[in-house]
Amino acid sequence: MKRVLAHVAIIAVGIGMIYPLLWMVVSSVKPNDEIFSNPGLPSAWTLDNYVVGWDAVGFPFLLFLGNSALVAVISVVGNLFSCTLAAYAFARLEFRFKKLLFAAMLATLMLPFQVILVPQYILFNNLGMVDTFLPLLIPKFLAVDTFFTFLMVQFIRGLPRTLDDAAAIDGCGPFTVFTRILLPLMRPALVVTAAFTFIWTWNDFLSPLLYLNSRESYTVPLALNAFLDSEGASQWGPMFAMSCLSLLPVFLIFLFAQRHLVNGIATSGLK
């Protein structure tokens, strides 16, 4: 009986949480006027909203999806490259000031992004990089997303050091140990890093808002914002249609990587 009650409670809250999402998806295939009057299923199904929304911001939405995908994929490559290197150094190598540098890295976990916002903007502006994707991408190759470096340091520390030692005795240098021994074992941490980097970059609004000015370089969140600005509240159907499209990649990653994601945040939080 208690079990049944628990199930009922969990399902009820779950439906409450998912209902807004489902409603948005259903609304995107509803006639526009029903969005304001009908909280359930539509009287007729239509793809008009997708057709209207696709060209609503002056360029086909595919351009924005493409921009976002480009930025997100390169960011994933950047983070995988830079964070693994830094994590390997912190977890396995000995060097001067290691403790101090590690503490500095941990401190940046708590650093609000706003503190470096203005000078970073001035820096990239002086380098002539405003309105290119470079300000969004360069930081990813410099291991600025401390969270992932930290996650991987913890992961590598959990791998037995005897593996490294055995490889070293067989004549492997640190680089070979890293690429041949550790990297293949780090797959779960790499998946988590790749998935979260993709999702966070895909959703990111503030950085593109600062650095991308011309419409053809907009990422999806900027395009949605421009759509909202130009149409106000009159075009909810097409807006929901494009919003659904914008959430689709995140949802797909969630479907395929959810086990890794859930385990990733659970362990990084605890150990």
């Binding site: 830079s82 830094a86 540098l101 890295m105 640190p174």
Partner: peptide, 10 residues
């Protein structure tokens, strides 16, 4: 050497 990208970023 492994630390270089991070150090530049930092």
């Amino acid at each position: 050497m492994f630390l270089l990208p991070w150090l530049i970023g930092m």
